[in-house]
């Protein structure tokens, strides 16, 4: 509190300020919660009521048919499984490789450190483009393999830098003491550095996992077998199909057989986001901490 300031007045101000903040936050809650509630209600409603725009906050003509039809589609389970596999394996590969490289680069005495750093940074600003990438993946025989989704992004440059900065910020004394006790560099990394780096790991896991979970374009390009498609492709297929636009009417095609009801679309959204919604609250505290760690050292 500022010196010489009228306490009573200040209290009044702070109460008003709190009220004001709370009102704003309540509005934010309403604004963000409403779309979510709407999606839930529509997915539980009678499609006909949805078509008549009767559904707002609560379901009209409650039924679970949309969920039945979504869940009875074998491909939602297959793509779910695929997404989980890609996310878990991909994130594991990411963490191992990113840690290894970040730790090495954090050591000032690494031979060629500057060269590697500059080379890595370079990729932040320049890349080969989609078509050369596609050709490389194809010539390596990775088309239609899950490794096409994992290896090209095995190390995220940005994440690597955040991690390197974190390692650089660790006091070198603890590592030196471990070395004096007879640890080799790998042992130092595994036994000393990693245990004190949990927050950065949580953050990296979250970053990479969300990245893999959300990736849509590379599986679309590199995978050919439908059995390997991740959830995002399945979602895109359900959500975007059947959007009639005037572009369709120009060619005179509007096949109502091809339209998908909104209830099914919304039920798909619910099924697809539920696991993330359930995991997020528990990871959130690490998330906030981890991001701060990346930005402020010491």
């Amino acid at each position: 509190m500022v010196k010489g300031y009228n306490m009573k007045k200040a209290n009044l101000y702070s109460v008003m300020f709190d009220v004001f903040i709370n009102i704003i936050l309540a509005m934010v809650v309403v604004v963000t919660l409403y779309p979510f509630l709407h999606v839930v209600s529509v997915s539980l409603s009678d499609p006909y009521a949805v078509m008549q725009n009767k559904v707002n906050f609560y379901p009209v003509g409650f039924n679970l048919n949309a969920y039945k039809s979504v869940l009875s589609n074998p491909y939602i389970w297959i793509s779910y499984k695929n997404t989980i596999v890609y996310t878990v394996v991909g994130t594991a590969v990411n963490l191992v490789l990113t840690t290894a490289m970040a730790y090495s680069l954090s050591k000032k005495y690494l031979f060629g450190r500057k060269f590697f750093s500059i080379f890595t940074t370079f990729t932040l600003f320049f890349n080969g483009g989609i078509i050369p990438n596609y050709i490389i993946i194809s010539k390596l025989g990775l088309i239609d393999s899950m490794w096409a989704l994992i290896l090209p992004i095995a190390i995220g440059t940005w994440n690597l830098m955040v991690m390197r900065n974190y390692f650089e910020g660790l006091p070198s004394e603890i590592e030196e003491s471990a070395a004096i006790d007879g640890c080799n560099p790998v042992q130092v990394l595994v036994k000393i550095v990693l245990p004190v780096s949990k927050p950065i790991f949580a953050t990296m896991t979250l970053f990479y996992a969300v990245w893999h979970w959300n990736t849509y374009f590379s599986p679309l390009l590199y995978l050919n077998d439908k059995e390997k498609y991740p959830l995002q492709i399945f979602m895109q297929q359900i959500l975007i199909t059947g959007e009639t636009s005037f572009a369709n009417t120009v060619v005179g095609i509007e096949d109502t057989n091809l339209l998908i009801s909104n209830t099914v679309k919304y039920a798909t959204i619910m099924v697809a986001i539920l696991p993330i919604i359930m995991v997020y609250p528990f990871l959130q505290k690490y998330f906030i901490k981890g991001v701060l760690i990346g930005s402020v050292k010491g």
Partner: peptide
């Protein structure tokens, strides 16, 4: 090939050749 791409991707991601 996997091993090769691990190397290529992790160290020199820009080794893009057009000799296809």
């Amino acid at each position: 090939r996997l091993a090769a791409i691990v190397l290529v991707v992790s160290i020199l991601p820009l080794l893009v050749s057009c000799g296809y």
